[in-house]
């Protein structure tokens, strides 16, 4: 495939005796929204961690834009444009929202000098725009630790956007968000994908959301890839339904 952005090839990962991921292969094409579903404990977050380099994989390879990243470290991978958000939201609670955004903005020059430089001035407009886009503009001077959980989640999303990733891995973006805000979030994910050109790879438990926005869905169960296909196929796939309902 020509436009494959991320290629995971037979990745396995075990914790002690527990096989969290077993021979998982999947492909993320550029410009799409891909979903990852599966019951609790099926290895979704482990797969995310394997991709972005949080732990070494036992076997298999991960390639991003054709480049081998299986052995790279977290910040190196992030700088290639492959970012992730966390299920338990992580933000810098002692910094203001603007500070959180500034530190996430990409550094143009890297090297010793960039450690001590100030921020490019036009960054500030981008930051304000993106904060407005996720609906946090009025809170921009507050410390991130003072925000509610849902707002922190939005801030983390905004931080990922300002970093201009090529591929963004979202770990349950709607968990803990007020249901009335979920529709707005879906729209924002679409805008991020279509207008900012960010490919999304989303873990999601909310079936209505994921079936609504994903172009293609992978389903994990017991650490193995159970099924894949477009949303309507997955919805009617008997093995997927069984996995969720616990039938044998």
């Amino acid at each position: 495939m020509n436009n494959e952005l991320l290629a995971v090839r037979s990745v396995s990962k075990a914790f002690g005796g527990v096989q969290a991921n077993q021979e998982i292969s999947l492909t993320i094409p550029s410009g799409k929204i891909i979903g990852l579903i599966g019951p609790n404990g099926s290895g979704k977050t482990t797969l995310f961690n394997s991709i972005v380099g949080y732990h070494p994989v036992d076997q298999g390879s991960v390639r991003f834009q054709g480049k081998e990243i299986t052995k790279m470290l977290v910040p190196q991978i992030a700088r290639l444009g492959l970012l992730r958000t966390f299920q338990q939201t992580r933000i810098f609670s002692g910094l203001s929202c603007i500070g959180n955004m500034q530190i996430s903005a990409p550094v143009v020059r890297s090297g010793l000098k960039s450690l001590f430089t100030k921020f490019p001035i036009d960054d500030m407009e981008d930051i304000e725009d993106i904060l407005a886009f996720v609906g946090l503009h009025s809170k921009r001077h507050l410390l991130a630790g003072q925000l509610s959980f849902g707002q922190q989640k939005l801030l983390e999303f905004a931080m990922a956007l300002i970093a201009e990733p090529k591929l963004l891995l979202l770990d349950e973006p709607t968990a803990g968000i007020n249901p009335t805000l979920i529709n707005g979030l879906i729209d924002r994910l679409r805008v991020a994908n279509q207008e900012l050109g960010i490919t999304l790879f989303i873990i999601e438990h909310n079936m209505r959301v994921i079936m609504n926005i994903a172009d293609h869905i992978y389903c994990l169960a017991h650490g193995q890839l159970l099924a894949e296909g477009p949303p309507d196929k997955i919805q009617n796939n008997q093995t997927v339904i069984d996995a969720y309902l616990g039938a044998n």
């Binding site: 977290v74 530190i103 550094v107 931080m159």
Partner: peptide, 21 residues
């Protein structure tokens, strides 16, 4: 400048700072 923000970010959550590149 950037240095101050970065070391504050490390204080708040070093894993996240690494994840942001």
């Amino acid at each position: 400048g950037r240095f101050g923000l970065a070391i504050n970010a490390i204080r708040d959550n070093e894993d996240k700072a690494e994840a942001m590149g």
